[in-house]
């Protein structure tokens, strides 16, 4: 072994921004995360040129997986054109030379903040979700060491109690986003603050989902064809948001998750939260030959 064999030629920047040792650490943790679905694995969470809490966890996963052939899509609450999504997309492409897309069907890697696209993801696609708070037990147990013990014991009684109290107080489960879900019948995870509408999309999905919290330094995963069951009582069924009957005021698409846009006269208009699906629907209506993929929901009903 010589000194030359242990060193590398000088380069102004590592490929994909992260250095090789950061990538190897993330790879080892991703391997374990996939092997124990839904279990939070601690990882180092390196510095990236973005403030913690703005998607650094997802960004590090994307930077590890990316290569010059990976087609990248980044969304923020369903929109491709928000500042956060556009900045991350531009950064990913600048440090890797990877092509970018807005179209869910063309993407190999989708980094997302708080939404899962409306079109069904394929077996070769990876969804990376940014997670602000990876600990589903935090609201019932602020001490994370004890929370870890509770995960170890599969002691989720307080989680159920919290849901029960919401039903008793308010008549329904008040948890809107990050609905606690049982993964592979063993670990309760937070699916990141995706709406209730999106949680059933993770159940027995074809794609691989990796959830990464950069500020909290935790990574977990949902492999394809894995059970993800929202915590519900037998007599109080799981309910998604009441968006099945809503129509998008711009594209005319019906039965998808909508953004509410308040109007001057006090009423509300709605538009598709998945912005690119809306754009494609409009282009299709105008006669452009665009591919609209199969969607998880048809007319507001879950299809699978």
């Amino acid at each position: 072994m010589t000194l030359a064999s242990l060193t590398k030629p000088w380069a102004p920047m590592s490929y994909g921004f992260l250095d090789a040792s950061a990538k190897r650490e993330l790879r080892r943790k991703m391997v374990k995360a996939v092997c124990v679905p839904g279990c939070q694995m601690p990882y180092a969470s390196r510095e990236v040129p973005m403030a913690r809490g703005w998607g650094t966890g997802g960004l590090q996963v994307s930077l590890t997986l990316i290569n010059p052939q990976t087609c990248v899509k980044v969304i923020d609450q369903g929109a491709d054109d928000s500042v956060n999504a556009a900045s991350i997309r531009r950064f990913l492409s600048r440090v890797s030379g990877a092509p970018v897309t807005l179209d869910t069907l063309q993407a190999d890697l989708i980094q997302s903040r708080h939404r899962i696209p409306e079109e069904i993801l394929r077996e070769d696609q990876v969804l990376v979700l940014q997670v602000p708070n990876p600990e589903p037990l935090r609201s019932v147990q602020p001490n994370m060491s004890i929370a870890r013990q509770m995960h170890g014991d599969a002691d989720y009684g307080r989680m159920w109690l919290q849901l029960y109290e919401q039903i008793v107080r308010s008549g329904r489960v008040m948890q809107g986003a990050s609905y606690p879900s049982m993964v592979n019948g063993r670990h309760v995870m937070t699916p990141s603050p995706i709406p209730r509408w999106d949680v059933p999309k993770l159940h027995m999905a074809k794609h691989l989902t990796i959830l990464s919290a950069g500020r909290e330094k935790r990574i977990f995963a949902v492999p394809p064809y894995c059970r993800v069951e929202p915590l519900v009582f037998d007599d109080v069924p799981y309910r998604v948001e009441d968006h099945a009957g809503l129509t998008c005021s711009r594209s005319g698409a019906k039965g998808f998750f909508m953004n509410e846009v308040p109007q001057d006269d006090g009423t509300s208009a709605f538009e598709l939260s998945d912005s690119e699906y809306g754009v494609k629907s409009i282009r299709r209506a105008e006669g452009d030959p665009v591919d609209l993929g199969d969607t998880w929901y048809t007319n507001g009903e879950l299809t699978k």
């Binding site: 102004p12 790879r27 996939v34 997986l65």
Partner: peptide
Amino acid sequence: TTPIPDAAETRSNATFDAIL
């Protein structure tokens, strides 16, 4: 300038893709 992956980076990336 966009960094170019060297042979080791390309190999590791493809290997990890296979492992994952």
